[in-house]
Design a protein around this nucleic acid. Structure first.
Lengths: 148, 148
DNA sequence: TTGACGAACAATAATAATTATCGTTTACTA
DNA sequence: TAGTAAACGATAATTATTATTGTTCGTCAA
């Protein structure tokens, strides 16, 4: 039996090839579902949607592929430091540098960041309390390790 | 038996009074321990330290009081959206508004933020990949609910 | 196309992080 | 100092995530 190729699959196969990923059915549905979820879905939410199209899919598959997509730059983490609650004494004004490799968090003075956003009226009448800026990149130690 | 009052307790009792908290021994030790931890400790790390001074303390007490301290402004959360992994399609440049009340996350265009930090050499040879800015405040719905 | 091989999958057990419950103890107020 | 609500400790329960394992599937060479 001959089946005509699904034109919709080609961009996805290309995207996988470009990122060094095997183009599996599960990944394609996961990706297509995410395109219909413009917000910031959790793995559980994605799983619930994907399950409608692939009832047999495993939650672990969703987790693994989300991580893989993030690793390859197809998806982006909204927060670099979820995982466990981190707190600090509410002292002077500073922000954070987060290493995307080892996840280490370092303080950075606001003045070392350069010009900052000016407080202003934001869309939707959002009432601003403060800014929290994460500078995401590679810390010195990880740079060294990668070169080494 | 007469015991002279510990001078160190007074600032803490004042701090509690100022924030409407009962000044318990556990809270005092928790607070003092956090003063000796300048980084971004997790609840488990704080618990381990506090346990050295109050071996009978419960982990749940540490969690409850950390949350209470955050709620009252004594401590600050390093990330407003830890908890569960959140991802988004790696599309155009934007940042996030996070409601400190309901935790809702909304996108905001970079241009709507005003002037941004200029990329520059950062302390410790940190190699910058990108910025992630959270504008923390109260969303319109929560403002309404509080007034209502 | 076909067959081998490694990657990906589903199922599920295990772990980590956090919250809820409940009986007891403690701090604050009159 | 006694009454009362809040806080505490112990621990069960829940939620989020990761690891394991046996099976299936996608890719590439013949």
């Amino acid at each position: 039996m001959h089946v005509s190729p699904n034109v919709e699959t080609r961009p996805f196969r290309k995207l996988c090839a470009d990122h060094g990923l095997a183009a599996t059915h599960q990944r394609q549905v996961l990706y297509e579902v995410m395109q219909t979820m413009p917000g910031h879905p959790s793995p559980e939410e994605v799983y619930a949607r994907v399950k409608k199209r692939i009832p047999a899919i495993s939650l672990a598959t969703v987790y693994k592929n989300i991580h893989l997509f993030v690793e390859r730059g197809v998806l982006k983490e909204v927060s670099m430091h979820h995982g466990s609650l981190r707190v600090e004494l509410n002292s002077h004004l500073h922000h954070h540098m987060v290493c995307s490799h080892c996840k280490a968090i370092t303080d950075i003075e606001e003045k070392d960041l350069g010009v900052l956003p000016t407080l202003q009226r934001l869309p939707g009448g959002f009432q601003v309390e403060r800014y929290a800026i994460d500078v995401i990149g590679i810390c010195a130690a990880c740079q060294k390790a990668k070169r080494g």
